[in-house]
Design a protein around this nucleic acid. Structure first.
Lengths: 147, 147
DNA sequence: CCTAGATCCGTCGCATACGACGCGTCGTGC
DNA sequence: GCACGACGCGTCGTATGCGACGGATCTAGG
């Protein structure tokens, strides 16, 4: 039991540090993201629209594992910049389809290597054993919490 | 290298989901935290003060792996509730020592099993192999990013 | 003594992130 | 037809989280 407590602290410290490195500090200097002034969540949302197609706000929230209100706020700011658009569905007026505007559609293909360049590079240089350890660890942790 | 890209998406999805489950939704129904109305970061800060002793704002930020401004904000809200106090150091007036107020000092000992009860329980029920997988995975991921 | 640098702190603006609430819209049952 | 629940959406209030800035304070060098 004492070990579990200590391990919990260790896990939380790891997760906090990872979050900082990947979600907020994920933008490398002189990268596309830094130049465009977009944040990681914003790029993730645009990428989802380009790769998986346009969707409603609730669908986007599900894709990004975010709440509906958070997603709505991100769409707000992207819409204010003219990067995405909202259109009310004609057949069912409850739905609002979110689309990427045309100029972005093309540009995004170039940077579509993803907002997680830092993480992607790190994983590319990792050995198969290391990669497996990372994925197994995260899957195991989530499985433990789901019990 | 396409694999690295796919793995990066998987890792990010895991981290997002874990963050939601542990950092924000970590408060179980009818737990001490839910009753007190405190958030996980707030409890973590108080716990650090009780377990590791009073400290300055910068020291607290280092302990919690947070930025100084974020930590200052958390202290602000705890101070507004009368749970912690700020005292200017007499010898060096630049420093502000943050302390837990007396009523909290005693109460906190009871709930000092940690704000991560959910995670602690999950780890306690995990097999040694599972625990090792979790810790190895997180350590490997951080080592990869530090390269 | 006193200027320069270093250090700590608080604050600001912004972007996430959540739950709760209310509004409009669609289907269903009466 | 029509009330009523279900659903999607936007908004509000609040908390976290960051970088950047400026103010106050100590310390070292002249």
């Amino acid at each position: 039991m004492v070990d579990a407590f200590h391990d919990a602290e260790t896990v939380m410290a790891h997760l906090r540090a990872l979050r900082q490195e990947l979600l907020t500090t994920s933008m490398e200097p002189a990268s596309d993201q830094a130049r465009s002034g977009l944040t990681a969540p914003q790029i993730g949302l645009i990428r989802s629209l380009v790769v998986e197609g346009s969707a409603t706000v609730t669908e986007l929230a599900r894709r990004l594992s975010l709440s509906h209100s958070t997603t709505s706020g991100i769409v707000d700011r992207l819409q204010a910049r003219g990067l995405v658009s909202r259109e009310v569905d004609a057949s069912d007026r409850r739905y609002t389809r979110v689309r990427v505007t045309e100029p972005v559609q093309n540009y995004t293909r170039e940077i579509s290597q993803g907002p997680y360049a830092r993480l992607t590079c790190a994983l590319a240089e990792a050995s198969p054993v290391e990669r497996k350890a990372v994925l197994d660890g995260l899957e195991t942790l989530r499985a433990l919490l789901a019990r």
